[in-house]
Simulated assay, not measured.
Amino acid sequence: MSAVVNRSTFALAARALSVGYRDRLVLDSLDLNIRAGRVSALCGANGCGKSTLLRTLAGLQAMRSGEVRVAGKSLAEYRRREFARTLTMLAQFNQIPAGLSVRQLVEYGRYAYGGWLRGMSANDRATVDDALAASGLAALAGHDVAALSGGERQRAWIAMALAQQASIILLDEPTTYLDIHHQIDILTELRRLNRERGLTIVWVLHDLNQAAAYSDEIVLMRAGRIVAQGSPDAIIEPSLLEATFGVPMLRIAHPQTGAPLCVPAHRVDQRGEQAAAAGLAA
Rank of each mutant, 00 (worst) to 15 (best):
L250R: 14
L250D: 09
I235S: 04
P248Y: 03
L261Q: 07
R267G: 05
D233I: 13
D269L: 05
T244L: 05
H254S: 11
C262T: 11
P248C: 10
S239H: 15
P264C: 07
P248M: 10
T244V: 07
E237R: 15
M249F: 09
A234S: 12
S239E: 13
Q256H: 14
D269V: 08
I236N: 00
I252L: 15
V268L: 13
P238F: 03
A234W: 12
G258I: 13
H266Q: 14
A265C: 10
A253G: 11
L241M: 13
P255D: 08
V263T: 14
L240Y: 09
L240W: 04
A253T: 15
A265M: 01
A234G: 06
T257A: 11
I235M: 09
I235T: 10
Q256D: 10
A265L: 09
C262V: 12
E242Y: 03
V247D: 01
M249V: 10
V263S: 02
L240N: 09
H266I: 08
V247G: 01
T244M: 05
P255F: 02
Q256P: 00
A243V: 04
L241C: 11
G258E: 00
D269Q: 13
S239R: 12
L250G: 01
T244N: 04
P264F: 06
A259Y: 04
A234C: 09
P264S: 14
T257Q: 10
R267D: 06
A234V: 12
A253M: 11
L250V: 15
Q256K: 14
I235R: 01
P264T: 03
G258W: 10
R251V: 15
I252M: 08
H254G: 03
A253L: 08
A265P: 00
L261N: 02
D269C: 08
V268Y: 02
E242R: 06
A243C: 13
E242A: 06
I235W: 01
H254Y: 07
H266F: 08
P238T: 14
V268C: 06
L261M: 12
E237H: 11
V263C: 05
R251F: 03
E237F: 15
V247E: 00
C262E: 00
P255G: 09
I236M: 07
L250F: 04
A265I: 05
A243G: 06
C262S: 13
P264Q: 13
E237L: 11
E242M: 09
E242N: 05
L240D: 03
A243N: 05
Q256L: 14
G258S: 12
R251K: 04
A253D: 14
I252S: 11
T244D: 05
H266Y: 12
I236L: 12
D233R: 13
V247M: 15
L241I: 08
M249S: 02
T244K: 08
F245A: 03
P238S: 12
L261T: 06
L261I: 08
A259N: 07
P238M: 10
T244W: 05
L241D: 03
I236Y: 00
S239P: 02
H254M: 07
L250C: 09
P248R: 03
L241Y: 02
L240A: 15
M249I: 08
E242L: 06
G246H: 03
A243T: 10
A234I: 11
I235V: 12
T257C: 13
F245E: 01
I236K: 00
P260A: 09
E242I: 02
L241R: 04
L261P: 04
G246N: 02
T244E: 05
A265E: 03
S239F: 09
I236P: 00
H254N: 12
M249H: 04
R251P: 07
